[in-house]
Amino acid sequence: MATSVELSTEEGGTYSGPLLDVRNLHVEFRTREGVARAVNGVEYSVDAGETLAVLGESGSGKSVTAQAIMGILDSPPGFVTQGKIIFQGRDLLTLGGEERRKVRGARMAMIFQDALSSLNPVLNVGEQLGEMFTVHRGMSRKEARARAVELMERVRIPAAKERIRSYPHQFSGGMRQRVMIAMAMALEPELIIADEPTTALDVTVQAQVMDLLAELQREYNMGLILITHDLGVVADVADKIAVMYAGRIVETSPVHDIYRAPAHPYTKGLLDSIPRLDQKGQELYAIKGLPPNLLHIPSGCAFHPRCPRARDVCRTDDPPLYRVSQHRASACHFWKETLGDDSVPSDDT
């Protein structure tokens, strides 16, 4: 489809890059209190069939980036001020509203955390699923309904034929999330963005839903961006990880490497601070301090007030994404020390 589209960037010629390539993306929210810089130069890419996990706490900008990619940012107060979102060779930010809308749903789709509020409570799920086909594909209602049943079977909702007339509130949390997945899958998009898809679910149901998502992704060779705060979920399904902090990517890495040897103190802190099922330690390591206020992001490296490794240079110089290895990068002046040293140094105050 879009493998040979002209690209108006420095590459020129035919396009053979990643499925989605986000470059130097900046998003800010203009509020009464001031300008909140939610996303500050995010760069990541996803290939077809690949799972990128975007890890971060609340306020890290992980969801805002996703909204910018989908083009569903609340604007105002949110504005994309800089950057490119290159999807299948086209910069989405240069597209008009109508073209952008065609991409949404058909080419890329999103799954939200709260399925109950993302589904329309007054329409039954058959109508909502069928709508995808009647609106985007111009099918008749009857055809659309048949496709809806098919979709529900594909996401393993039992008794799909009967349940198609049910309303969202009649489904359990796990089943509702399956309906959401079915909806996202309806038009067989090339990219799915899942924003905390299992956070609201119980542990045993979480596993079911994650497995389903991973399986569908393999089957259709989709790109998947999994936005989460849970290092455990990431470890199970992701190929590579981008860790976000204060609207920036602070570390990117293939999934195995990051758990073995994190190259950024924040990642390391997160990994050390989660209690382990198979170990009973004495005291948990805790990252000191609080996530930053986006209205007043600290100077230099945004993590420096909480970092055990911070020196003077961290207070003044914003670290670039240093290349750690072929597929790894870390935005820390002292990534070498972080990688090499396993002990947490004492705070130098």
């Binding site: 805790a286 000191k288 609080l290």
Partner: peptide, 15 residues
């Protein structure tokens, strides 16, 4: 340190 250094109100509120 980690436990007590959470002093300044921050995160999501205006100065």
């Amino acid at each position: 340190d980690a436990d007590t250094l959470e002093r300044a109100p921050g995160h999501g509120q205006e100065p």
